[in-house]
Design a protein around this nucleic acid. Structure first.
Lengths: 139, 139
DNA sequence: AGCGACATTTGGAATAAGTCCAAAGTTGGA
DNA sequence: TCCAACTTTGGACTTATTCCAAATGTCGCT
């Protein structure tokens, strides 16, 4: 908890109560929440928090490099505290988003495209998670 | 023009005037338009077309396999008549989206992830286009 | 402790993208 | 011709997000 305050300070962010509350959720989660989900999660413990502040704070964290913002599903942005390069899997059935480690996938040629100054890239995978592999037949 | 009617028929789509008008734009463009952009482009020649019909038609085309829908920029979907697997480059400065041929990039390991039934994947590249090298083309 | 300057938060209005709906229009085939 | 199914439409509604001006909080200085 306390180290979040330090983390914000080292990123030149004033650690207001609201920002600390948002940080304590969004900088830790692996769920790739939308802004709305952040709002719901944080208002549980900080009921006076406003939506506008959630948006302000998320965008500030993105600007300061504490978060990444991704467009992986239609209509909404999701936020991810995992700021190092990595890939994403999107479960078509549930909408769940899962990080895929950078080294798990080998990509060749993406940063060497004519006329393009590549800032970053990632592989986006869609599909479904399959049921646990067991020797039982479940039907 | 006429072959669009045939194309719709072979995909079990009744070729109404509205659908043909939308098809003549969206099945040909390389611009990755949003629904709103389709609406604007097509109402230029078919002024009575409604937004609802544009959405209905785009979704129908997606369902019938004539279009792909992608979430590449925040908040909006774009539509792409290029339905074969390929990658995308998104220009950060202009928002322009450009297809990258499948074979231009080699990806290894994306379809072999534990617990995941991969339906498809693509590389999404972000950056900016750099100055054109003496491409002379009439504007 | 008080003050001013600045930063931050807030609720609500505004905007944008998309969905939903019931009524009206169109069409193909018996 | 007529009808049942299909298609289109405008408008209301929802959801995500931005914008704004007022209120509140913070900090350094005296």
């Amino acid at each position: 908890m306390k180290q979040v305050v330090e983390l914000l300070r080292t990123h030149a962010i004033q650690p207001s109560a609201q920002r600390v509350a948002v940080a304590n959720y969004v900088l830790v989660t692996k769920e790739h929440p939308t802004a709305e989900q952040v709002f719901h999660a944080v208002t549980a413990t900080f009921p006076t928090l406003s939506r506008a502040t959630v948006y302000n704070t998320l965008h500030l964290f993105v600007k300061k490099g504490l978060l990444k913002q991704f467009a992986l599903t239609e209509g909404v942005s999701v936020f991810d505290p995992h700021v190092e390069p990595h890939h994403h899997f999107v479960d078509d059935e549930t909408g769940a988003i899962v990080d895929i480690p950078w080294d798990r996938i080998r990509v060749e040629g993406a940063d060497d495209l004519p006329g393009i100054d590549v800032r970053d890239f990632q592989v986006v995978i869609r599909g479904k998670r399959h049921r646990r592999r067991t020797t039982n037949k479940a039907t």
